[in-house]
Simulated scan of single mutants.
Amino acid sequence: MTDSPDQPRYDVIAIGNAIVDVMAPCEDALIEDLGLAKGGMTLIDTARAEELYAAMGPAKEISGGSAANTLAGMAALGARCAFIGQVADDQLGAVFSHDIRAVGVDFDTPKRKAEPPTARCLIFVTPDGERTMNTFLGASQFLPPAALDEALIASAGILYLEGYLWDPEEPRSAMRRAIEVARETGRKVAFTASESFVIDRHGEDFRALIADGLIDILFVNETELASLTGETNFDAGLDALKDSVPVLVATRSAKGAVAIASGERAEVPAEPVAKVVDTTGAGDLFAAGFLTGHAREESLERCLKMGAICAAEVISHYGARPEADLQALVVGA
């Protein structure tokens, strides 16, 4: 049967960084000694990656990447998902490919034979659960438009794009083409801003996408909202964007989240967590819950609630992929 806008093969197809996370607990003193910006995400080169890895304590390797984490959460909720991202033909590339397929996400992007190696993110987690990320983008920043399966993009109800991947030239071109394909086939486009530094570098592009009506669902956190709009007041920032994006979703960490769609505003508090162990992936899993609800045509408040539940689960343990039964948590809430 041929896919149609009313009968997509996938709920969501995402384009993002294919990264393996290397995570280790540490004390605040090590963050200071290494000159890291606590709680932030810094892009690093090969030499810095080797230096930081040598300074880490016992580490755990977990496949990550923002959009890939979101799809892992969606798959855990029963959504049908596919991923487009670039790995190298190396050990970590094999790890990433295995892990994302093992959670039920289709992934068929051809591996890159040349250098650099598969991307990795070195994550230092302090006792308060804050994560300090240092990302070596490696092969992920060489995703070319030619690697896109345009029929695959057309077969998904929602195309989800990761702002982090807008920085390198090749994947930025690939995502622009993917947006064209989604628009030509009547699909929705969702976009996560990812980090304020990305907006600082590419805010003009993002604001143009919004002004041109190319973004249907926009995810930002409180800081990113301010960077994108220039408004330091949260509500003023929402007001600046609410009429330009059909669905605007803004998260506020412990203060919960707000969504505005077609004049309707919904807000939910953060879900209670016994102990915050690691905030890695909180925004990614929030998007997983929200997008799954949206794909199922749940109410705006219910979408937010699903996002909050998924975010709470992932910050209760190390790693950016869910460990508990998300479907059971969502159904029971």
Score class of each variant (00 low, 15 high):
1 M>I: 11
2 T>K: 12
6 D>V: 11
8 P>N: 10
9 R>I: 13
10 Y>S: 01
12 V>P: 01
13 I>L: 14
21 D>P: 04
24 A>G: 05
28 D>S: 09
28 D>R: 07
33 D>H: 08
34 L>E: 13
36 L>A: 04
37 A>G: 07
38 K>V: 07
47 A>V: 15
48 R>N: 06
48 R>Q: 14
50 E>L: 14
61 E>D: 13
61 E>P: 09
64 G>A: 09
64 G>L: 09
65 G>C: 14
69 N>A: 09
72 A>E: 00
73 G>W: 04
75 A>F: 10
80 R>D: 09
80 R>G: 00
80 R>V: 04
88 A>L: 05
91 Q>I: 14
97 S>Y: 06
106 D>A: 11
112 R>N: 06
112 R>L: 13
115 E>W: 11
116 P>T: 08
125 V>C: 07
125 V>D: 00
130 E>A: 08
134 N>Y: 08
139 A>L: 07
148 L>R: 10
158 I>W: 00
160 Y>M: 08
160 Y>A: 03
163 G>N: 04
167 D>Q: 14
167 D>E: 13
168 P>S: 12
172 R>H: 13
173 S>V: 07
174 A>T: 02
180 E>H: 09
187 R>L: 01
192 T>M: 07
196 S>L: 06
199 I>W: 00
199 I>Y: 01
202 H>E: 11
203 G>K: 02
206 F>I: 15
208 A>N: 12
209 L>K: 04
210 I>V: 15
213 G>M: 14
213 G>Q: 13
214 L>N: 14
215 I>N: 03
216 D>E: 12
217 I>L: 10
219 F>I: 06
221 N>K: 08
228 L>S: 02
234 F>I: 08
235 D>Q: 09
250 A>W: 00
259 A>Q: 02
259 A>S: 10
262 S>R: 12
270 A>I: 04
270 A>V: 04
274 A>M: 05
283 G>L: 04
287 A>E: 01
287 A>N: 09
287 A>H: 06
290 F>I: 05
291 L>V: 06
292 T>H: 15
292 T>L: 09
293 G>C: 05
296 R>A: 15
300 L>N: 01
303 C>K: 07
317 H>N: 08
318 Y>N: 14
322 P>S: 11
328 A>Y: 08
328 A>Q: 14
332 G>E: 15
